[in-house]
């Protein structure tokens, strides 16, 4: 499941920002792959694509600034949603 999410994220990031050759752990910001306006697009993508609303306090590099961070964040959010539904 994590691999599917990572693959989907990587594909969208490559298509949207025309960047390649980055690892799952590479920082988008430090490596200048995505800037802050790009981050807004990324947030909109994950909210629409993975079905949750990100809280303002969650919009931090630890959750968003690499594919690994995003995969963990999405898993937590989706796990939280499933727990609520259950």
């Amino acid at each position: 499941m994590a691999e599917v999410v990572a693959s989907r994220l990587r594909s969208w990031i490559q298509d949207t920002f025309f960047v390649e050759g980055f690892s799952d752990s590479d920082s988008f910001l430090k490596n200048r792959l995505i800037d802050s306006t790009g981050m807004m697009e990324l947030i909109a993508f994950i909210e629409t694509g993975f079905g949750f609303r990100a809280e303002d306090a969650e919009l931090v590099p630890d959750n968003l600034d690499s594919i690994d961070n995003l995969v963990r964040y999405i898993a937590r959010k989706q796990g939280g949603l499933r727990a609520c539904a259950g």
Partner: peptide, 19 residues
Amino acid sequence: VVIGRHVKAGVSLVGSPPH
């Protein structure tokens, strides 16, 4: 729209954030 990246030919971007 506020945009600061590479956009491919023929694409329209609307909204905030742009799509």
